[in-house]
Structure formats: C-alpha cells, structure tokens
C-alpha cells in the first residue's frame, strides 16, 4: 500500500512539476504580448517621446539591468568573459553602424571572438531597445564621449529595422570597420545608480 501510494505521488508530482514549468513559461512569455502593447512602458512614450528625459534613462537602466547586465556586467566591461560594450558612440558615425547597434539586439550576433553568441532579443519592445541602447551609449561612453541627444534612438527607428530575417552571422558581417570593442579597451568609470525608479512615479508595471 505504501509503495502504491508512493508511486502515485511520484507520478502526480512529476506531472505537476512539468505543468508548473509550462505554466511558468507561459506566464513569462505572455509578458511579451504585454510589452508589445506598451503597457509596461513609461507613459512618456505617449506625451511626445523625448529620449533625453530622466524617465527614459531610468527605463533604459532597468531594461539593461534585467536583460543585459548578467553578461555585460554592471559597468559594461563584460569582465573578460563577454564583450565590453563601453565607448560605443563611435559606431554612430561609422557607415551602417547605426543600424548595426539595433540589429545585434534584434537578431543576435556571433563573431567567434567570444564563446557565447549574443542571443536575439526580438521580445524587447521598440521602446525598450531604444532606451537601453541610449543608456549604453551614454552611460558607458566614458568621460566626454557621450553622443549628443540628436543622435539618440527613438522607438520608431527600431520599428523600421524589424522583420529583416538576419542571422547573427549576417549581423557580424554588417559590422562597420572600426576598432573592435576589445581594442577600444575598457576602464570606463561608471557611475552606478541603483536607486533610479524602474518606471516613472505613479505608473504600475
């Protein structure tokens, strides 16, 4: 009897665990839809998007923290294991560099220099990609190298780059001929602010 009950428990538990994992995955992936609807994004989007607003940088920082920081680390150096993403502003002026910076997030990137490919993250919304790219460009630019606000990304620019069917090797080929991130070196001193609001005051997530 004990053995029979134990077997029943095992089967029920295994089914429960698998269903639980699927439920978890469903809940988490369902957030993609919400993100696309713009519900989780700051309302600043709707009253004339101004990427220079403090809310935008906070939004970019939050996006960076939950999606990028695990690999690229808190100061964007990657600590030798992952590509550093400091001093990226030079891409903006290079040929094709502007699209490249967004494409590598949308379609991923694989160069062979580092062990792991950059995973494609099409699930991020246009606003998230714009905000996080701006955040990286500004925050990890190094003293005096930050691009001026006229060069920052808007969500609508990200939207035009979607749907291109690029592979991560295609993205690697489209990389502008500029010194590699590694050659540009690290050592950018980063002011780490963690108390910035994830979403503007009064907005629920």
């Amino acid at each position: 009897m004990r053995h029979i009950l134990a077997n029943v428990f095992t089967y029920v538990l295994v089914i429960g665990l698998i269903l639980g994992a699927m439920g978890f995955a469903w809940v988490r992936s369902a957030q993609l839809v919400i993100a696309h609807e713009g519900d989780v994004e700051p309302r600043v989007l709707f009253d004339g998007p101004d990427p220079t607003a403090a809310d935008w940088l906070a939004f970019g920082e939050r996006t960076y923290r939950v999606n990028c920081q695990n690999c690229h680390t808190v100061d964007g150096s990657g600590r030798g294991m992952y590509p550093p993403i400091q001093r990226m502003a030079v891409h903006l002026t290079a040929d094709g560099g502007r699209d490249y910076l967004v494409n590598l997030t949308l379609y991923g990137l694989y160069t062979g220099t580092y062990g792991a490919p950059m995973p494609p993250m099409p699930e991020l919304s246009d606003a998230e990609i714009a905000a996080v790219t701006n955040y990286i460009l500004v925050h990890f630019a190094g003293e005096g190298n930050a691009p001026d606000a006229s060069r920052w990304y808007f969500p609508r620019e990200v939207a035009t780059l979607r749907g291109q069917r690029l592979s991560e090797w295609d993205v690697a080929d489209s990389r502008p001929a500029i010194p590699s991130a590694r050659d540009l070196g690290r050592g950018v001193k980063v002011n780490i602010t963690t108390d910035a609001p994830a979403v503007p005051e009064g907005e629920d997530e």
Binding site: A21, A25, L32, E123
Partner: peptide, 26 residues
C-alpha cells in the same frame, strides 16, 4: 520557481527559453 518570480525579474523571453530555464531549475 517562486524565487524566480521575485523582482527584479528579467523581461519575459520566448516560451521555449522560459520553459527550458524552468525545467532546469526544477
């Protein structure tokens, strides 16, 4: 699984990735 849902959590990814991660943790 509960701990994974305690903020800050990463933005949701595709179903297969999230399922894979959940199964790994389980």
């Amino acid at each position: 699984i509960g701990l994974m849902l305690v903020p800050p959590v990463p933005t949701g990814r595709s179903f297969l990735v999230e399922l894979s991660v959940a199964l790994g943790f389980v």
